[in-house]
Each structure stands twice: as structure tokens, then as C-alpha cells.
Nucleic acid binder design. Structure first.
Length: 284
DNA sequence: GGCCCTCATGTTTAGCGCCC
DNA sequence: GGGCGCTAAACATGAGGGCC
């Protein structure tokens, strides 16, 4: 196992599932090269993979940890691994999960940031924490339980600017009222915190901003999957529309107001392996 | 000519083998 | 690690043959 392999296992332990394209964005110069290594790791028993049948064409493989990899990760952390049957159940549930595409969407957001960072000097994704890690940290640090449950936390560094943010990844399955309720929760418990809403369509973004009128909207910014696909911009680019009556110009991620809030995740993540490239984030 | 059936080829997206 | 080209999978489409 190379340092890069071990880092990949840490990422999968924290974030459960990735596609070859996402692994490539995080760790490899090309999708082709990532696919080769993922295939080798799968054949050597380090990874498991699954995918659904789609028509026409074929779906990308979804890669997750195999049981030997779970044991390896636990051993390196001096922890007791889950049982084999518990792991098998976890993988089967993951493959059949209704939230699998949402999880992949969130992970794709962060791996896209890592790819953007690799292409720009003095830029990096310094932290990438999962939903469960954030929930645990917020509960411990702030006593916040059900009011807010972000899909992830990140710290983005671009030159001298540092942007810490929560991400809410929307696939159009939640009502706007529910999304609006989350904003109230953030305004109550974490006023001033930057919260990014990744919405699926321009129409939903328009309705969402209309709903924000009168809500605690400080620090809220939105983008859409449609805009990202049409513009070719990465998620660190000028695609974020701030909420509120001020500018209607879309800003870069680094131009969003920094909240000064830094989440301290009380979980394994820092220093689990020599990180093989400078742009790679601390994962948890 | 119209209908039905079989077979070959094209399409799309992702994975992979081989060579350098 | 890069380049080239093939494979997998399932459907769409068109050509060709047989029958009435």
C-alpha cells in the first residue's frame, strides 16, 4: 500500500463512498490513472465496489472499503474494527440507500474543490468533514442537536483568504420551507457562519432567494448544478450568489465573507498518513 | 406491398489491456 | 503516468430475408 492508497482508505472511512472520477479529482492526474489503481486495489481485496444498471450506457462504479481495509484502518488508529457481518450489512445498506446519490453529490462537491485547488497555486481545501463528524462536533461544542445538520464542513484557503463554510446539498427532494427553516437554525445557533446551498436548478434558486426575504440570511450563498454544468466553472469559481439586497454579482468562494468560525472535529483525521500532495485536505 | 423476425451496427458512459 | 483502442451493457435503428 502506498501513502496515497492509505490516504484513500482514510477518506473512504470518513466519507463512505466515492466514484473513480471523484478519486481522480482528489488524488490522481487523470480518471484513467485512478481507475487503474482502484481496479488493482479492488482485485487485491482492499476495496469493494457496486453500481446499478442504467439505460443506456453504464453507471460509474461506487467504491467503498472492503472488510480487510476496515481492519487496516482500525489497526492504524489502534481502534477495534466493526465485525465482518456488521461491515457486510453496512455495505449492502449503502448500495441500496436512498441517500446514496446525495452522499455522492456532497462528496463530489468536496472532491471538485480539491481538483480546483490542485490547479491553482497557493490554494487548498484545508478541511473536509463529513455530516456525521460535523453533527458530533456541533453537539459536543455547541449543544446543537436537531436544529441544523449540515451535509459537510470545509475550510478553503486561497492566497491570504480563508473561507470556512457548511454545505447544504439539495437534490430537490426537500421543501423550500424546510430549507428556509435550516437558515433560521443557522442564524440562531451559528450567526454569521457561511452556509453554502448547492441547489439543483436555477428556478429553485430563484424561489429559494425569494423565501429568504425576512429570514436570517447573513452568510448564505447559493449555486446550482445547472449553472456549474453550463458555465464549466468549478465550485470554487464565481458561481456563488449571496443572499440579501446587496450585490447580485456571483462571487468566488474565496470572496464570500469569512466567518472566523473554525470547527474542531474531535475525531480521527489529522495526520493519519503522510499526505502525498499539498492540496489534500484533512478528512474526518 | 405489408408485416414480422433475425441479425448487424450504432449509441453512450465507464472500465480496462497493452505499450511506451 | 500518457496514449490508444477495445470491451461491457442495453436499447435504438436499419438491412435483409421469409411469408402471405
Amino acid at each position: 500500500m502506498t501513502d496515497r492508497d492509505l490516504y484513500l482508505l482514510d477518506v473512504l472511512a470518513a466519507h463512505r463512498v466515492l466514484t473513480a472520477e471523484q478519486v481522480a479529482a482528489l488524488l490522481y492526474p487523470s480518471v484513467d490513472r485512478a481507475q487503474r489503481r482502484l481496479l488493482a486495489l479492488t482485485r487485491r481485496g482492499a476495496l469493494e465496489r457496486f453500481r446499478a444498471r442504467v439505460y443506456p450506457g453504464s453507471q460509474a462504479w461506487r467504491y467503498t472499503l472492503s472488510y480487510p481495509a476496515v481492519q487496516l484502518v482500525a489497526a492504524r488508529r489502534a481502534e477495534r474494527p466493526a465485525s465482518r457481518s456488521a461491515h457486510n450489512t453496512t455495505v449492502l445498506r449503502l448500495a441500496r440507500s436512498r441517500t446514496l446519490e446525495h452522499q455522492l453529490g456532497v462528496n463530489g462537491f468536496f472532491t471538485s474543490l480539491a481538483r480546483d485547488a490542485a490547479a491553482r497555486p497557493l490554494t487548498r481545501l484545508a478541511n473536509w468533514y463529513s455530516e456525521s463528524t460535523v453533527a458530533t462536533a456541533l453537539q459536543w461544542d455547541h449543544g446543537i442537536r436537531e436544529a441544523i445538520r449540515p451535509d459537510g464542513y470545509g475550510r478553503w484557503i486561497e492566497g491570504p483568504r480563508v473561507t470556512t463554510f457548511f454545505i447544504e446539498y439539495d437534490r430537490g427532494t426537500e421543501s423550500l420551507e424546510r430549507l428556509g427553516g435550516k437558515i433560521t437554525g443557522y442564524a440562531t445557533y451559528l450567526p454569521g457562519m457561511t452556509v453554502l446551498y448547492h441547489l439543483h436548478s436555477a428556478l429553485r434558486e430563484t424561489h429559494f432567494h425569494h423565501k429568504l426575504i425576512g429570514a436570517g440570511r447573513e452568510g448564505v450563498a447559493t449555486t446550482t448544478a445547472e449553472l456549474l454544468a453550463a458555465s464549466g466553472e468549478g465550485v470554487s469559481g464565481p458561481v456563488w450568489l449571496p443572499a440579501g439586497p446587496g450585490t447580485r454579482r456571483r462571487l468566488r468562494l474565496s470572496e464570500l465573507p469569512g466567518s472566523g468560525f473554525a470547527l474542531q472535529a474531535n475525531e480521527w483525521g489529522a495526520g493519519t498518513a503522510p499526505i502525498p500532495a499539498p492540496h489534500l485536505p484533512e478528512v474526518a
